[in-house]
Design a protein around this nucleic acid. Structure first.
Lengths: 208, 208, 208, 208
DNA sequence: CATGAATGAGTTTTCATTCAT
DNA sequence: TATGAATGAAAACTCATTCAT
């Protein structure tokens, strides 16, 4: 079986990650066994170790790739041809796709592990990403709503929206039958529009 | 050493639960060992089994009691002398107290376990509580803001606020240096007030 | 099985060490399995870990106790009521006792491991002991034979005798049917006496 | 790639043996891995199995060939133009060459393995070689020192010298900073000469 | 012939649970 | 009742060996 193509190796690596993600999401990282992951991936337990040096590394590997276009868009909103409403909707639509819940499980697990082990790197990364995204949210809010945000703590609002996103993910995971994330988002956006139209009116009044 | 009082037994049970909650929050249920919990509780490993038949049961036991006054208030708002703003603030203030993060960890862990094991009872309980609280939030919103909610999806808004609460908990756990939950809440409330004042104006205008 | 007496624990620890020493000597540290040692000691594999944190520690534990009165005597010859001949004989007589070969195996194994892993501590210890013993040998040589050592490199001679001791151990292990260590020692001592009587004669001649 | 010359095959076999000897000496047989040996030999793990059916066989193969000119000289002293002093010195000089310690490790390992597995063949071989060499030593002692050995147990002395040789090897391995083997040998030879000069004197006195 | 990916049995170690004291 | 030593069933991981390419 020598001299297998790189593509084949990559595919196998991928299949191990997929199998692991599935099993981890199902049972949690701690309860999942390498044997089960191997079985799921259709290989022998030993083979995994040619691709990942340890269970922990495998878990880390699973946690990484869930990066997405959406995430990037929030972090660099100036480079993207979009607006707050659209991007928000795309972000929440993502949560409705199949597999989103499994990702959420994995991400929560990852988060817990990071906090527990005081895994500085992971925690830091989370914090850094948070900051970038919150900054992106604030940027879009200001660009899209401008002066109408007058008197509002935009930073805090952006952070609140970020929190809301995670909460929606979590709640959806726990209670799929509750109000859907997208509908929650609609409600919030309606609220925001109502609030901003006040500003419009007021400034209109001022102009008069 | 015979015939120990029931009170004593209950106290010991309680102390085991406290110890377990602490260790579970620190290390996670899977990584926590009975020996460590026993040590934390100041008893021997074997003694735990007089009170809980298994580690799993102990974990379940930990997961139950995190009920609080605030929670009750949201679930039965009609019985409580309070209003939305006040109760919200009290709720978020709770998140700033020391120990709140440990609770969050435990709750997240609990949630993950419940989802994984398809622990119908726990999931159901979470869902039921969610429903009661969201209903309570909606009740308070309507009572406090009444007609000004015109045109808004109050159910969805209540649900969004509930999501926001969980997200704020989670984010605070992961990134204690981010914008504080209470400040996030202030921002949202400012937004709500702005939105509702529109309604006031409009209705005022209509009356004219 | 709680509250077992310290004596019992010590005895168990001892029995584990004995079992381990036996198995290690038979199979070598690497090839020996904890399961086999446990079986030999009449306990379960897990129980060993209450007494020794790892296989390596167990091996180290086996290697330690082979300290002996004889060794101490060589290292502190001034404190002991003995002479070179007597102590040499006692030392080599030790090699003929049953179990000596097993000790030799263990010591060689220990030595190889130490050298391989560049286990500084162990190597250093060996070197330090060597120095102390060689110094002791030289001390006794000088005290017992005094001026008759004139012209000899006593340090080197002492070191040579130390080497001889180890070589005799090793050869006996490998070829039990070869000339016995004690007889080898006799031959060397005869040689020494012959050499020293020369000195006597010469000094006698000088006096004339 | 068909029909490779026998010479090529032999060379490859040789290179595998060399690589294995190096790795075995460094890590010990048990800890050495076929992968590492293969890497050291510059081939693939699988290829080794074309030349040696198993790791054990490979180890055995390594253990065989450490024969040397010096060894041969001791075993057949009558065929060699040399004397005890010269040959001794040559023998001990060998110990100072670089690589001697690696050989010693391997030999000790070999010895331990042989004793452990009760590998009759290897043990027997060691014993037989020992006997031949001790006989050779005794032969040279008698030839070189003749009557002056009167009263000495020459067999035992020869055996003692053989033991000394091994001990010196071992000690040098463990404590390179101790007195050098050659200096030890000098001391012993000085002792022998002193002893033998007695005999000279005595016989001289008798003649008078 | 060589390669090196894959296998899978075997090893150390952990820890929930039991039970003699 | 409490203790804590002991159990023994996993689980992660290693590596000699095989065999498709």
């Amino acid at each position: 079986m020598a001299k297998v193509s790189q593509a084949h190796l990559d595919a196998r690596r991928r299949s191990i990650l997929d199998a692991a993600a599935k099993v981890f999401a199902e049972k949690g990282v701690a309860a999942a066994t390498m044997a089960e992951i191997a079985h799921e991936a259709g290989i022998s337990p030993g083979a995994i170790y040619r691709y990942f040096p340890s269970k922990e590394d495998l878990a880390r590997g699973c946690m990484e790739g869930s990066a997405e276009a959406v995430k990037a868009a929030w972090q660099h909103p100036e480079q993207v041809e979009t607006d707050f409403r659209t991007l928000s909707r795309a972000t929440f639509a993502e949560l409705e796709r199949s597999g989103a819940d499994a990702d959420t499980r994995l991400l929560l697990e990852r988060a817990l592990v990071a906090v527990r082990d005081a895994d500085a790197a992971l925690v830091e990364e989370f914090g850094a990403e948070l900051q970038r995204i919150v900054r992106g949210v604030a940027f879009l809010l200001r660009r899209d709503f401008g002066a109408r945000l007058e008197g509002l703590d935009v930073e805090a609002l952006a952070q609140a929206l970020y929190s809301f996103y995670w909460g929606a993910r979590f709640v959806r995971l726990m209670a799929p039958d509750a109000v859907a994330p997208t509908r929650q988002l609609e409600a919030l956006q309606a609220l925001m529009e109502a609030a901003f139209s006040v500003a419009d009116r007021e400034s209109a009044g001022t102009e008069r």
